[in-house]
Design a protein around this nucleic acid. Sequence first.
DNA 1: AACGGATCCAACCGCCAGTAC
DNA 2: TGTACTGGCGGTTGGATCCGT
Length: 259
Amino acid sequence: MKCKKGLWSPDEDKKLRDYIVNNGLGCWSSVPINAGLQRNGKSCRLRWTNYLRPGLKRGGFTKHEEKIIMTLHGMLGNKWSQMSRHLPGRSDNEIKNHWHSYLKKKSAKLENIKAKSMSVDTVNEELSSASSVKSRGSSLEPSQHMEELSAGHAEPSDYSKEVHLKIPPKILFSEWLPLNSDESQEATTDGGSLSDDTQEGISVSNLQPSPELDIENSIYDLIFEDNMCPNYNIGDVRMYSCDELYYYASPSLLNSGSL
DNA sequence: AACGGATCCAACCGCCAGTAC
DNA sequence: TGTACTGGCGGTTGGATCCGT
């Protein structure tokens, strides 16, 4: 049988929908034959999962959905089908398309901002080792740094040494997520330091994502932060908006070396 | 109004893993 | 054990639409 390709007609959609509603999901290769469609099984499956399946959301992605996608992409990479399991009503194809058409650019912008700040940190280290200056406190709010960097007013080469020294370290939001695990919570709430290697300046060795990152918990954390705590303190760590995807440790904490 | 480039998105393609025979 | 078939997945394509000039 000659298989038709291209866009599906409303009549074809109706045939496929009626067939699956009446017979349920089964062997896709037999669906086009039994449903009277001149399509191959793959095409039928794709049409059903991406367009006809009940419960699918139509329309644009919400900001919250975008945040979840960006967070998951940071953790999973291009695992669109896994991401779709965390976004009810969204197909993997829809997520993939939205990523390529919009979120990839948004993510690249954030990466660019991150890269600029990273180079600032590198210069900080060099200056710090040269002058034995260890103060890394900041007189500027992180949001101000973000605004400057975003607006392109804060190219690293334009930074004064003084400003360099005032920029606090930053940690990606995804790297922060494991801190909310039970173990980390205990470490931060019992008054003890996280590890011995944090005494000299700042160490992020305890802030790396765990190999068995619990995605469900991460999503929960994201939802919690997004809905309940857009700007708050967790112990000595100051959280900023999820939009920026990273946080700054407070200057007092850094000076005390107790991170 | 016409044109061309940019963007979006539905659908196809090719690969891979699992399964039946 | 090898082969064919099937479903699932990620990458890519191509047509439709949008938008600026």
